[in-house]
């Protein structure tokens, strides 16, 4: 039986110490299967970004357990020696704004990830062009970032997240700067890519117009998650 792409249990994160300590996460549980796109919603300060940072291995949880594709990466302490390489090879990031590197052209923005992993420049660019074509922005491969529209930039950002074919993608409010039509297009693309590459995608969002598109949603309130199925929402 295939392992879940992401499995989190009892994850806690405490900022500060003593009287000033704040528990941002108070025992989060979450399971995401390969090829699944789940929403993570909650009010400001509920712990969404903290959870995303823990999952992205950029901050260390205080306690709990996290596994990626069956491998334990955190169990009351990091179990992976090189977090940087793990982020590069196994986690894709899509941000609220595209955050493309302005001094690189489109193809090199995407090819940068495989290059950082040691893939030769030519091969990395070939992979980048394939991914850009899959996201319908292949014709803008040689353009400068500043020449792209907002929607095109977000597609390039998604291509960058996918190019190393990581098992999970963490998307932090990826539709925030987009209008309804473009926002729905981005979610459709993420769903297609999840299906195509078997990538598990967690989308943090406040965006009411895209929330109905998720089959499963995790609500996060006061540092704890509550799972809600799409069918339950429809009812």
């Amino acid at each position: 039986m295939a392992h879940p792409a992401i499995e989190i249990s009892g994850l806690t994160k405490r900022y500060g110490e003593g009287d000033t300590a704040v528990d941002a996460l108070k025992g989060v549980d979450m399971i995401v299967q390969p090829g699944e796109v789940v929403g993570l919603i909650g009010p400001s300060g509920s712990g969404k970004s903290t959870l995303l940072k823990c999952l992205g291995a950029v901050i260390e949880p205080t306690a709990g357990r996290m596994t990626l594709a069956g491998e334990t990466i955190y169990d009351n302490g990091w179990k992976v020696a090189d977090l940087r390489a793990m982020r590069r090879d196994r986690i894709g990031f899509v941000f609220q704004a595209p955050y493309l590197i302005p001094f690189l052209d489109v193809v090199d923005n995407v090819a940068l990830l495989p290059m950082l992993a040691g893939v030769p420049n030519g091969k990395a660019r070939d992979r980048a062009r394939e991914m850009l074509a899959a996201l319908d922005v292949g014709h803008r491969a040689q353009a400068q970032v500043s020449q792209l529209s907002g929607g095109e930039q977000q597609r390039v950002a998604i291509a960058r997240a996918l190019v190393n074919q990581p098992p999970i993608i963490l998307a932090d409010e990826p539709t925030a700067p987009l209008d309804s039509e473009r926002a729905l297009t981005v979610i459709r693309i993420l769903n297609e890519m999840a299906q195509r590459f078997g990538t598990a995608i967690i989308v943090v969002t406040h965006d009411e117009k895209i929330i109905p598109t998720f089959r499963r949603i995790y609500h996060i309130r006061d540092g704890r998650t509550v799972e809600e199925a799409g069918e339950a929402r429809a009812a």
């Binding site: 990031f93 940068l112 992993a117």
Partner: peptide
């Protein structure tokens, strides 16, 4: 700073 943060997040080494 933002570009450097992104580079570090996607796996760029400090020496890069």
């Amino acid at each position: 700073v933002r570009e450097i943060a992104v580079l570090k997040l996607i796996g760029a080494r400090n020496r890069t």
